[in-house]
Amino acid sequence: MTKQKGATSVLVISTLAMVVAFTCWAAISPLAVLLQKTYHLSATQKSILVAIPVLLGSVMRIPLGMATDRFGGRKVYSLLMLFLVIPAIGLANAHSYMAYVGWAFLLGMAGTSFAVGIASVSKWYPPNEQGLVLGITGMGNIGTAVAGFALPTIAKTSGISSAFWALVAPVVIAAVAIFLFTKDPVVSKKAQPASQQFAVMKNKMVWVLSLFYFVTFGGFVAFGNYLPSLLVDVFKITPIDAGMRAAGFVVLATLVRPIGGYLADKFGASKMLSLIFILLSACALILSVALSNIIAMTIACLLTAALVGIGNGTVFKLVPQYFPTTTGIVTGIVGAAGGIGGFFPPIVMGIIKDATGGYALGFVFLLVFTFSCLLVNGKLRRSAPNNIKMSSAS
């Protein structure tokens, strides 16, 4: 397989569309403190509002990934972007907590852009280039930072409603660009029927990668979404300042993602993942005992950003390489696991905050998960010392 003509334009437009989609997916988070004050929400209620878009965006990655395999990224991606106009307008006109929860849930469809984008782009490039290329595609995650930078400022100057109206035009432009200026690749094998696609779920390595992505991408989503609220609560800084700091986390995690794919290409995914989980465990330990020290927290958070970004690129280098004809559904499954990994922590943190008055226990849970991943990966390395072995389900 060689790189197909037109691959570069698909890569660029798909990545930019993902930036827009992730801006929508993360739109609630930087505005959560303002919404909490407006509607007098508890920490748990605020956490639910922050987390709810992640739920639909995670679960629906599986059917959207399958649809991309069967119908092509051009149609699926453009229709997805058009759909996002509906909840964006709904949020712009919401006037109650439950209305925000309902529309935020639907806005979560933006998170499925990851499965659609990865499944689309992967088919244009040969396996030896996919680590770097899919890392570049995954940089669309930087939309989370765009939300953190832009939306609090818009809300402060023009109101919360204007922040959601600001999403509509970019979403429409992205939909039109995908439909008019991209095409689907020529593929040598047709997508498998749904029954055969679901058979891939019997492959244990799908679930191992899902566990790893639950921690790496889940950590990215959870930190990106909840850091603004945590920073305001612990250090009493302004929502705009907190949004900027959280955006810095997202930018770093996003920029290093292609490096993860490159290092996995060069040194092997298993070795990289072992190092990542060791260092993530250390960061979780530091955060659990030094949360009130802004210098220690900043250093630990920035290192965590780099590690989860590299980890995301490392995990997803493997998916299209070993599942070339079921990339969409495997991307959906693994991506769903990662999204769910970002759904629970904000809610857990809110509950812990209301119950204990602090957040330390939440980082203890992160330590447990990362260390568990280290043990699982260690077992895999003993059975396959050079790399993670994965039998193709194609």
Rank of each mutant, 00 (worst) to 15 (best):
2 T>W: 00
8 T>L: 14
9 S>C: 08
11 L>F: 12
11 L>D: 11
12 V>I: 14
15 T>C: 06
16 L>Y: 07
24 C>Y: 14
27 A>R: 11
28 I>E: 02
37 K>S: 11
38 T>S: 15
47 S>V: 04
50 V>H: 13
56 L>K: 04
58 S>D: 11
67 A>T: 14
68 T>F: 03
69 D>R: 03
70 R>C: 12
70 R>G: 01
71 F>D: 02
73 G>Y: 13
75 K>H: 13
80 L>K: 13
87 P>R: 07
88 A>G: 00
89 I>W: 01
89 I>K: 01
91 L>R: 06
98 M>L: 14
98 M>S: 14
105 F>C: 03
112 T>K: 07
112 T>W: 05
113 S>Q: 15
115 A>Q: 08
118 I>G: 07
120 S>T: 15
121 V>L: 06
125 Y>I: 10
126 P>I: 04
127 P>N: 06
136 I>F: 07
137 T>E: 12
137 T>Y: 02
139 M>N: 02
140 G>H: 08
154 I>F: 03
155 A>F: 01
157 T>S: 15
168 V>W: 00
170 P>T: 05
172 V>K: 05
180 L>R: 13
183 K>G: 15
183 K>V: 14
184 D>H: 11
186 V>G: 10
192 Q>H: 06
192 Q>E: 15
195 S>D: 10
205 M>Q: 08
207 W>E: 07
207 W>Y: 01
211 L>T: 12
215 V>W: 12
216 T>I: 13
218 G>H: 08
221 V>Y: 11
223 F>P: 00
227 L>C: 03
232 V>H: 10
236 K>L: 00
237 I>D: 01
238 T>R: 04
248 G>C: 01
248 G>T: 01
253 A>T: 02
255 L>F: 11
256 V>S: 08
262 Y>R: 14
263 L>F: 02
267 F>I: 13
267 F>S: 13
267 F>R: 11
268 G>N: 01
269 A>T: 09
270 S>D: 12
275 L>R: 01
276 I>M: 03
278 I>A: 14
286 I>Q: 05
291 L>F: 09
293 N>K: 05
293 N>R: 03
298 T>V: 09
300 A>K: 05
305 A>S: 09
311 G>L: 05
321 Q>Y: 15
322 Y>I: 15
324 P>I: 09
325 T>R: 15
325 T>K: 15
326 T>L: 12
329 I>P: 12
332 G>L: 06
341 G>H: 09
349 M>F: 15
349 M>Y: 12
352 I>L: 09
359 Y>V: 03
364 V>S: 06
364 V>H: 10
367 L>E: 05
368 V>H: 00
372 S>H: 10
372 S>F: 09
375 L>S: 04
376 V>N: 08
